[in-house]
Design a protein around this nucleic acid. Structure first.
Lengths: 164, 164
DNA sequence: TTGTGGATGTTATAATATAACTGATGGCAC
DNA sequence: GTGCCATCAGTTATATTATAACATCCACAA
């Protein structure tokens, strides 16, 4: 079983240039939406930017609080509609086990990912985990199951936090 | 990569003797609780039995409605407390992506499982998926991640429903 | 008896999410 | 330009999921 190379994990907010993450995410979002002929409106972009403020998963009502300075009229529906859009475009992940949302760093790729959620620093690392997905596919074949979507969410301690 | 043998899937309510599933589940629960010196009280047993009425994932408030004939005083806390107990004992799974609960057919085993959730018939098949878990473990090692819990929930069509 | 711990009862409320209708905007066919 | 349509956002209300906090009960042991 060969495991494909992974992009460097960004679980260390101190050590990486986070503004670069945000800029990249917004730029990619912009490009993808243009290509697809869908609108990355101001609200949607603001929500995406708020989600990318950290590598932690963010709750919808936290986003609501944080968008209010920019969108005074914001209500739950404002946020949930933006989240629905971003999810549909693959720009964010929903973290089911936390009822929260995190930026997707492989936006535009179709493959599903593995989400490693740190209990300590709360950051979420996304990994393509090609090997895992391949073995999973074999498992589905055996089970006669046609998979439409999968979430692999793992709670534990990230490299950094387990070393502390 | 060898895949271990799986117990026969019980995704077909019509074709299998479901009463057997329920009886087995209750008997195993009883044994485990006795062994562990914890109390499988009437409420807890009733909730477990209600969850086992089908192989579908059941919502907490559905359980609340269904337990009322038996426990007229039942309130949300009644159900959530019973669910917490059953989860702690490994007798049920929480299906994060549905905010619902399903009986665990490998109660007492420590290993994590793969949950295959059918969009059509709503039944949940549990698989040990030893191969998947093994490859996952290798992935964690590479990521320097110490996993404490993992949920692998896959939505799609089960064998039966994809053949219809 | 008297405490102690576990389970349950009870009330209230928090947290998460959606429905349904209204209005505003902008493109485009005519 | 006018009218039409689709998309997005505003607004109100409510549904759904989950927990907090405190009271009560009861079995059992000291």
């Amino acid at each position: 079983m060969t495991i494909l190379a992974e992009p460097p994990p960004h679980t260390d907010t101190l050590a990486h240039n986070h503004q670069q993450c945000v800029d990249d995410a917004l730029k990619i979002a912009d490009q993808l939406c243009t290509e697809r002929g869908v609108q990355l409106t101001a609200i949607r972009q603001q929500v995406l930017a708020l989600i990318w403020e950290s590598h932690k998963a963010v709750k919808a009502y936290e986003l609501l609080d944080r968008i209010k300075p920019l969108q005074a009229a914001a209500k739950p529906a404002t946020i949930y509609r933006a989240l629905d859009f971003l999810l549909a475009q693959g720009l964010i992940h929903r973290v089911e086990s936390l009822n929260a949302f995190v930026g997707c760093s492989c936006s535009g790729h179709q493959h599903e990912q593995l989400l490693l959620i740190c209990k300590q620093c709360e950051q979420v690392e996304e990994r393509m985990a090609a090997g895992v997905m391949q073995v999973l596919a074999e498992e589905f074949r055996q089970a006669g199951f046609s998979a439409h979507s999968k979430a692999i969410e793992v709670h534990g301690l990230c490299r950094r936090c387990s070393q502390l």
